[in-house]
Nucleic acid binder design. Sequence first.
RNA 1: GCCGCUUUAGCUCAGCUGGUAGAGCACCUCAUUCGUAAUGAGGGGGUCACAGGUUCGAGUCCUGUAAGCGGCACCA
Length: 653
Amino acid sequence: MIDLIFPDGSKRQYDDGVTGKQVAASIAPSLAKRAALIKLDGELLDVDRPLPKGGQFEILSRDSAAALETLRHDTSHIMAQAVQELFPGTQVTIGPSIEDGFYYDFARDEPFSLDDLPKIEARMKEIVDRDLPLVREVWKRDEAIAHFKSIGETYKAEIIEGIPAGEDVSLYRQGDDWKDLCRGPHFPSTKFIGKAFKLTKLAGAYWRGDHRNAQLQRIYGTAWASDADLEAHVTRLEEAEKRDHRKIGRAMDLFHMQEEGRGMVFWHPKGLTLWHTVESYIRRRMDAAGYVEVRTPQVLDRVFWEKSGHWEKYRPNMFVCETEEGEELALKPMNCPGHVQIFNHGQKSYRDLPLRMAEFGACHRYEPSGALHGLMRVRAFTQDDGHIFCREDQIEEETTRFIELASSIHADFGLERDHIALATRPEVRAGSDAFWDKAEAQMLSAARKAGVEPVIAEGDGAFYAPKLDFLLKDAIGRQWACGTIQLDYVLPERLDADYVGEDGQKHRPVMLHRAICGSMERFIGVLIENFAGAFPLWLAPVQVVVATITSDADDYARQVAKALVAKGLRVETDLRNEKINYKVREHSLAKTPVIAVVGRREAELGQVALRRLGSDGQEILDLASAANALALAATPPDIARNAGGVERAGEAG
RNA sequence: GCCGCUUUAGCUCAGCUGGUAGAGCACCUCAUUCGUAAUGAGGGGGUCACAGGUUCGAGUCCUGUAAGCGGCACCA
């Protein structure tokens, strides 16, 4: 006998070997009909599978949130069956559920075309209508291998060959003759899957994720419990597309890229204004946090990069040039070795540590062509780089301080943090296990001291040390990696950095590599997408447009603009011979935060009518108070805080 | 780098099965001076990504190259 505890807390006893469906039937026949999946002590099971033990028991319907992943997984199997029915000779490989949907990788000589997707979708719906039972079968490993080999499914056979000998494997039968290796669980039959799915894209993907292996054809799809959910998802995608920084960058005239400079950005005046605003802000924060700013050479002799170790490992990804005299030089792919040179210049004492060195360092990396993506992945980029040279016993405190600094900065940009990832030792690595134990523990404990519990990213660390990565969330919930801090014992050793300790002996400092934006290009791309171009006042490239109603007000409009500029605001005037409706529409679409409308009335009374983006009302103020109010509202958050702090201190005193 | 798709005016796109290019917005000119999301009229603008090929004839068909896009791999 087994004991089952139901969600309402009640407890009942059942015979051994009872299935979830039988339990459901014992409660209500309608429940048994609806049962799509069983949850037993948190584990999901097929409804027809005998329960292996007692425990917390729940019957899930197809539209419960916990069943969504299974629904997507099932949909991928249906797609595999549909593809094999339509395109005989196609081999199946793997087909997992992913965020919002699923994919399946197929091996087929001829490529699928986009036109095939509707056909496959139609066949999938037909399979749903057939209401084929999904039946779990347990096979001997070797028999399963022989089976898949006999039907020409070499990839499946290879997967099973990876399972230890003697272990049984589970196969799911979909109808009479379609079978797939699968751990399960699945819904009872294809009808449960429903039709709220859509095949979305074709892609190439390497077998087992390794580029040395054969390339398979991947079909992506999205699947939901209801048509309404599917529609909402499609709408979300459309929204995301509207925010694309490449689109907005063009529309707002921020930057462009062109063929002759792949992965390189031409920053237009407005884009560079945005850049400068971000850079000035970061610089102020770095100054306040005790960093010294430096600048290191753009191009250095090959010998230098050989010494740092980059030549050997990253030569194919470096831009290299040769001089008339035959010297080989390379554009810097990173700033760290340069910073070590500054550290090494002159003798350092333990009293100089921690030494925090920052640089807006322009770097060049020859990224693979397929990796380029707007501002997000470029070949010429500027890191808000920084290196903290410190003693080993200062690592934790410096890391904690950095996490706090980065968190505050991200918050000022309106970016919410999803989580911090602790990337741990990779398979190929330098250093002993004892070293990694210690280093990982240091990063973990530093994060906890800053009040965050990192999510472990197993094996994602650099080859010389672990790192913490900041994963931010934008306005529509997408994640972006911005900001990192990583430990490094290797580079100080290679470049022979040292300081004199209290004991008068030379010691090796530890380096902490850190960045808050990552790359300025990428960070600006994230900001554009986060705000969909509607920047907060302090970031907006153009903060105020002074627009006239008739040409009578032209002189006054110039006077208004001058007064606003004098307050440090970024202002444009629109004196065109156009109707005010037209101007308001145009500047609203351009996401200008404030339109200051002036007509004859304002000119006579010395006023301005302010219209803020997103509201259709207007606020009529005299010029001086409008200028003051806007200047105050446009104050960068760090300066606003400091001003507030001074006032509060004054009050307290 | 690999797989697939795409490339027509500054932007967004139309151009059926081959018969030497079209719209809206933007731009320029003129008229209009109009109080909070598009005033009207006129005008200029294209080696149809590039290079070959098939054809009497190619934006349209074929091949190659490049770039862009979506993935994969990569990301010090």
